[in-house]
Simulated scan of single mutants.
Amino acid sequence: MGEMAARPLRADAERSVRAVLEAAERVLAEDPGASMEQIAVAAGVARTTIHRRFANRQSLIEALALSAARQLAQAVDDGRPDTAPPLVAMHRITANVLQVKGAWAFALGLPADPDSEAAVLQQDIDRRCVAVLQRAQAEKVIDSAADLEWVRRVYYALIGESLRGNADGSDPDGADPDAAAARIIDTLLHGAGPRA
């Protein structure tokens, strides 16, 4: 009986933590100096709730960064980087990453402590990205002489520019993750040179 009663409470606690993290992303994106109280109000939870879950503002920010990094890692996983054909994986991952990065821009822009779980997740994402690029190179989609670490950096820059263009409204394709992903992959593989 006691365990049955605890289960909804746990789900409720998880929901309130999720609400706090989503509110923290919104509030801190507008005002990086916002207080925990302002975040609690935006989340629709009591001040005591936010203080019970997060010891201080720094622990809330660390939890926000980790949650966003986990969602980014999941976005990569959902693109099936190890099993889908490389071009399919690259497209799916790019569309997924654009959605997560668009929703969690503040959290993903936070500097990560090199020893943090968020930093470890980012290193794993980088490694998996290069692995997909290696598969694409093996299938002759990417030139055999290409420096894949450079290709990864250019790819990340294209994602960043796509998000920046979407944020200021100057990118008409930016609102559609699939259209933006197609353009990013096309630019990555073919640049701006004439098409055959």
Rank of each mutant, 00 (worst) to 15 (best):
A118Q: 02
A118M: 03
A118T: 00
A119P: 01
A119N: 02
A119R: 00
V120C: 00
L121N: 02
L121I: 15
Q122V: 01
D124L: 09
D124N: 11
D124T: 13
I125M: 00
I125D: 00
D126W: 09
D126L: 04
D126H: 14
D126T: 05
R127T: 14
R127A: 15
R128N: 08
C129E: 07
C129Y: 02
V132P: 01
V132M: 06
V132L: 08
L133T: 05
L133D: 03
Q134H: 10
Q134R: 15
R135N: 06
Q137E: 10
Q137D: 05
Q137Y: 04
A138P: 00
E139Q: 15
E139I: 00
E139G: 03
K140E: 13
K140W: 10
V141K: 11
V141C: 07
I142Q: 04
I142C: 06
I142F: 05
I142T: 05
D143N: 12
D143G: 15
S144A: 15
S144F: 12
S144Q: 14
A145L: 13
A145I: 10
A145F: 11
A145R: 13
A146F: 08
D147Y: 06
D147W: 03
D147L: 03
L148K: 11
E149R: 11
E149K: 07
W150R: 12
W150K: 08
W150P: 02
V151D: 04
V151P: 02
V151F: 05
R152S: 12
R152V: 06
R152W: 06
R153C: 05
V154Y: 06
V154D: 02
Y155D: 10
Y155H: 14
A157L: 12
A157S: 15
I159L: 13
G160C: 06
E161Q: 13
E161P: 00
E161R: 10
S162I: 03
S162K: 02
L163A: 07
L163R: 03
R164V: 06
R164H: 12
G165F: 07
G165L: 07
G165Y: 04
N166L: 08
N166K: 13
N166A: 15
N166P: 00
A167T: 11
A167D: 14
D168Q: 09
D168K: 07
G169E: 10
G169S: 09
G169C: 08
S170L: 07
S170Q: 11
D171Q: 08
D171C: 11
P172C: 06
P172K: 09
P172Y: 12
D173Q: 12
D173L: 14
G174I: 08
G174T: 09
G174M: 08
G174Q: 06
G174S: 09
A175M: 06
A175F: 05
A175Q: 13
D176Y: 04
D176L: 04
